[in-house]
C-alpha cells in the first residue's frame, strides 16, 4: 500500500446524503477478477445516461484534478463491496470527506489507502459553501496533524483516526502483513480454544 502524504487539492462536491455503494459502483460492474479499472464506472449511472452519453450536470463530469471527494452524511452505506473503494481510488481520489461514514466502507477505504475524514456537519457545510463560492478552492488534509483546512480562509477542523490505522497509512503498511506476523499467537489461541 502507498504511504499517505499531505494533500492539497481541489474537491469534487457531492452534497447528497446516504450515498450507497450501489451508486458508487453498480453491481453489474463487479464481474472483474482483478482490482484495477473500476474508476471507469465510478458513479456510472449518475455520470452517464443509459445510452452512454455524458450527464453534463453531474459533478464528476465537470471537475478535474480533484483528489478529495466531499460527500453528504452517511457515505458508503449498503453493500460491503470493496470495489467501491477501488473505484474511488482508481478514479484518483485519495480522501473522502463526510460528516458520517458507513462502517464497512470506512474499513475498505482505509485498507486501500483512501482516507475517510469525518468532520462535523457544520464544518462539512462550510466546505460545501466554500467550494460552491469558488470551485477552484483548495482543501488541505494533513493526516500527521489530523487537520483539515480550507486554503482561502484557513478555517480548519481536527479529525479523529485510530492511532494504529494512522500509523499504517502514514507508513504504507497493511493489516495482512501484520496478521501474518501473528501466526504463532493465533496457533496458540487455537490450541487453547480446543483444549
Amino acid at each position: 500500500m502507498e504511504a499517505f502524504k499531505k494533500i492539497l487539492s481541489k474537491t469534487a462536491p457531492l452534497p447528497l446524503e446516504n450515498v450507497d455503494t450501489d451508486q458508487v459502483i453498480p453491481a453489474r460492474f463487479l464481474k472483474a477478477t482483478t482490482r484495477e479499472g473500476f474508476g471507469e464506472n465510478l458513479f456510472r449511472d449518475w455520470r452517464f445516461n443509459t445510452d452512454g452519453s455524458v450527464k453534463e450536470d453531474f459533478v464528476l463530469n465537470n471537475v478535474t484534478e480533484a483528489t478529495i471527494l466531499l460527500a453528504g452524511k452517511n457515505f458508503g452505506c449498503g453493500s460491503s463491496r470493496e470495489h467501491a473503494a477501488w473505484a474511488i481510488h482508481d478514479f484518483g481520489f485519495k480522501v473522502v470527506v463526510s460528516s458520517f461514514f458507513a462502517d464497512i466502507f470506512k474499513n475498505n477505504a482505509l485498507n486501500n489507502g483512501v482516507l475517510p475524514v469525518q468532520v462535523s456537519s457544520e464544518f462539512l457545510q462550510q466546505l460545501f459553501d466554500a467550494v460552491e463560492q469558488n470551485p477552484e478552492q483548495k482543501i488541505a488534509v494533513d493526516l500527521e496533524d489530523q487537520l483539515i483546512s480550507i486554503e482561502e480562509t484557513s478555517k480548519s477542523e481536527s479529525f479523529e483516526i485510530n492511532a494504529y490505522k494512522k500509523h499504517c497509512l502514514l507508513n504504507g503498511l497493511d493489516d495482512i502483513d501484520f496478521l501474518i506476523s501473528k501466526k504463532k499467537e493465533i496457533e496458540e489461541f487455537e490450541n487453547k480454544a480446543i483444549a
Binding site: R35, G78, S79, S80, R81, E82, H83, A85, I104, N107, N108, N111, N112, D174, D175, I176, L179, I180, K182, K183, I186, E190
Partner: peptide, 30 residues
C-alpha cells in the same frame, strides 16, 4: 457480503467484510 448478519439469528457474531479482509481471514483465520 454485508448480509452476513443473517447468521446472527442463531446467536453467533456474523458480519460482512471487504475483500482485503477476506484476504486477512484466508491468510490467518483472523
Amino acid at each position: 457480503d454485508s448480509h452476513t448478519s443473517t447468521h446472527g439469528a442463531f446467536g453467533s457474531i456474523a458480519f460482512g467484510i471487504g475483500t482485503s479482509e477476506v484476504e486477512q481471514v484466508f491468510s490467518t483465520q483472523c
